[in-house]
């Protein structure tokens, strides 16, 4: 079950950039592309834990700032020769606000 919560204004996230949301299960990076699509992924590269939110956003991909692994923002899948995946979360914008699916928190508290 999805449970969207308002986390920020769209303008808080720069186009081709990201902002971080702190959660009890670690940081989530919320990305905004040049054409205002939103994506949310774990802010932790499966390679050496680099903060993906600090990577360069190009198209619908991000390049990790530590060792240049590239991830598809749609799937969280590492591209090219690298093997790995980052968890993704549903996120959408509505009336200039950014809404993140916080169902993962509910599951956690239910458990």
């Amino acid at each position: 079950m999805t449970q969207f919560i308002d986390i920020a204004a769209l303008d808080d996230i720069p186009p081709q950039g990201a902002r971080v949301v702190k959660t009890p299960v670690g940081c989530i990076a919320v990305f905004r592309t040049a054409d205002d699509q939103l994506f949310a992924l774990d802010d932790r590269c499966p390679h050496k834990g680099g903060p993906l939110s600090e990577g360069i956003v190009h198209g619908t991909s991000v390049t990790c700032p530590l060792h240049a692994w590239v991830f598809d923002l749609n799937t969280g899948q590492a591209q090219g020769a690298d093997d790995g995946q980052v968890r993704t979360y549903a996120v959408r914008s509505e009336a200039g606000r950014v809404l993140l699916d916080a169902a993962f928190l509910a599951r956690r508290s239910a458990a």
């Binding site: 919560i5 971080v20 949301v21 959660t23 956690r108």
Partner: peptide, 10 residues
């Protein structure tokens, strides 16, 4: 800083 802190909410 982080744009939102959901640890507080939790």
């Amino acid at each position: 800083a982080p744009v939102a802190d959901l640890t507080i909410r939790a």
